[in-house]
Simulated assay, not measured.
Amino acid sequence: MILLGTIVNGLAIIIGSLLGLCFKRIPERVKTTIMQAIALAVMVLGIQMGMQSEQFLIVIGSLVIGGWIGERLQIEDHLNHLGQWLERKTGAKDGEGQIAKAFVTTTLIYVVGAMAVLGALDSGLRNDHSVLYTKALLDGFSALLFTTTLGIGVIFSFVPVVLYQGSIALLAGQIDRLLPSELLDMFIVEMTATGGVMILAIGLKLAGILDMRIANLLPAILVTGGLVSIVYYVDLLF
């Protein structure tokens, strides 16, 4: 079943979020310490991913162009509105705007990493779900931790995760036929680095150091594919 890994990943986020509700009554100072620790871990992960780039100009170009597109499309505003709509529909109350904040923050963390793309491709091409099973464990545990500090809004992030990874898995056959393996490998490397910069920004935002509309950088992932393709085919010509 092509979508098995994606479904397990979504269920892990749901289960982790529900378990996190059991720890909602911990003291506020403990929550603050946990959130600061999570922020540090997210920053280290972002730096580690960003350092994988082999052509950092592609990363910079992707972020600049992607940020411009994201601002024009107002992606973060739309995601926040979706989070607020979910809050109204479910009747969940977790502080003003907290549902939307939790939804947007965790959605970004779960979809911009390389494991989401690699795992979905493995599921679609080889029916191998091992990468997504590993991601499910990581996402489930982090969902538990995020829920203790950000609230129940974390649980809703399973929807974009399933849609995003499921779409890649279903389209994997076409992707494999259309793209040379060298181009795909190059894209994954630079996409990982671009996503790493975004994850670093998320960590800084969680720590209260940076106030930025990070979701508006999401088009940078698609722009990376375009820039990598240009560089790849130009190199072939010259």
Rank of each mutant, 00 (worst) to 15 (best):
L3C: 02
I14P: 07
C22S: 08
F23E: 00
K24S: 11
V30E: 06
V30A: 08
A39T: 05
L40I: 13
A41C: 09
G46F: 10
Q48C: 04
Q48L: 08
Q52R: 14
Q52E: 13
E54T: 15
F56L: 05
L57Q: 10
I60P: 03
G70D: 12
L73M: 15
L73E: 12
Q74H: 12
D77Q: 13
D77G: 06
H81L: 14
Q84R: 13
D94Y: 02
G113I: 01
A114K: 01
A114C: 01
A116M: 02
G119N: 02
S123Y: 00
N127Y: 02
H129M: 00
Y133W: 14
I152F: 14
G153T: 10
V154L: 03
F156Y: 15
Q165G: 00
G166W: 02
A169G: 03
L171A: 14
I175N: 01
E182Q: 15
F187G: 06
F187Y: 13
I188M: 09
I188Y: 03
M191N: 12
T192P: 06
T194S: 10
M198E: 08
I199T: 13
A201N: 08
G203F: 11
K205G: 08
G208V: 12
M212Q: 13
I214N: 08
I214M: 10
A215M: 11
P219Y: 12
A220G: 09
L222I: 15
V223L: 07
V223N: 07
I230L: 14
Y232W: 11
D235N: 15
F238G: 14
